[in-house]
């Protein structure tokens, strides 16, 4: 076992799969010699050569289109979109092409592509670097969308994503890259996609979160203990498909829920969690299911980030609102 940051766990996962499978290729803007702008691919070109780990021309649609084409040749592409805000350039290649290749060809072809990309707020980036666009991706049948909240999950989820025979959008919250270390096994292991993780058990209220918001939810749960409130915290890990079974089971026990996302209120994952809860567990509910989200503006210029991003205080407030309903 070693202590790793999330970015180290990601590099370790890429290295593991490059070793395991000759068909795995890692590429994107600056991922080769430079090792990626966040150093996620550091040392990989040196270890595996330019045929396996390489730089691409600067064109996101081209990168994903290239990946779709390479998929037909038995390869397993792991492209990087340098910042996920740049995916707008590649929306057809992702949603119109990669996501539909298996369906469109009646199963004759498939796209075992893992698109890795940094996203998420709080690190003072320029415009279109920090946006939470997972809601857009989750609306596209044919994709899986994975968002790890910690180094251990990041490694296991990324290895599993690369082994999937269908496209996965693997989103890495920039604030989590180096914010803490934890024990990560050196050997290979997988974390199954589509399975949520109960991070903390509790009997009074359920918090559903993913990515950086898992940590805000855990902090809120810690504070609520002082008021004698025991919150259960669920880390979705995969936001498409959402593991609704785990959420419903929890809500049937706690009878209350707050769904938390860093994305805007209109931007999705939380809304679908709320509607699934009311469809499947309304008679268990003691209060309306509430949401903690960012407001419905464009992602703010970086000086306004701190006032805009949801935080643990917002979660505590909503939890009390639910308990006192």
């Amino acid at each position: 076992m070693a202590q790793m940051t999330m970015i180290q766990a990601i590099t370790n996962a890429l290295q593991t799969e490059l070793k395991n499978d000759e068909d795995v290729l890692v590429f994107g803007e600056d991922v080769g010699q430079n090792g990626g702008v966040f150093r996620a691919t550091e040392g990989l070109q040196e270890e595996f050569g330019e045929d396996r780990v390489f730089d691409t021309p600067l064109a996101e649609s081209g990168i994903i289109g290239l990946s779709v084409g390479m998929s037909t040749q038995g390869l397993r592409p792991v492209p990087e979109i340098q910042f996920f805000g740049f995916v707008f350039e590649a929306m057809d290649a992702v949603s119109g092409q990669a996501a539909r290749l298996r369906y469109r060809s009646g199963g004759r072809w498939h796209a075992p592509i893992t698109i890795r990309s940094p996203f998420g707020g709080g690190v003072h980036t320029p415009e279109l670097h920090a946006d939470s666009l997972e809601g857009l991706m989750a609306q596209q049948p044919g994709l899986r969308v994975v968002i790890p909240s910690n180094p251990y999950d990041a490694k296991g989820l990324l290895i599993q994503s690369i082994r999937e025979n269908d496209p996965v959008i693997f989103l890495e919250h920039m604030k989590l890259y180096r914010s803490f270390r934890e024990e990560v096994p050196e050997e290979e292991y997988t974390v199954d996609l589509g399975k949520a993780n109960v991070k903390k058990e509790g009997s009074d209220i359920t918090f559903v979160a993913y990515g950086a918001m898992v940590h805000a939810a855990l902090k809120a749960a810690e504070e609520l203990k002082e008021d004698g409130i025991e919150a259960e915290v669920i880390d979705l890990r995969t936001v498409s498909p959402v593991d609704y079974d785990t959420i419903i089971e929890s809500v049937e026990k706690t009878n209350r829920a707050v769904v938390i996302q860093e994305a805007q209120r209109q931007a999705g994952i939380a809304a679908s969690v709320v509607s699934e809860i009311q469809e499947r567990a309304i008679l268990h509910l003691e209060a309306p299911v509430l949401r903690v989200t960012a407001p419905d503006t464009v992602y703010p210029f970086s000086e306004a980030e701190e006032v805009w991003l949801p935080n643990h205080n917002d979660i505590v407030e909503k939890a009390k609102q639910s308990i006192n309903f």
């Binding site: 290239l66 779709v68 998929s71 040749q73 390869l75």
Partner: peptide, 20 residues
């Protein structure tokens, strides 16, 4: 159906052929 989407894919098929 999408005009031009096949062009980037063709580059990928060709690169895949070269790699294999």
């Amino acid at each position: 159906i999408i005009i031009g989407a096949q062009i980037t894919q063709a580059a990928g098929v060709a690169l895949g052929m070269k790699r294999t």
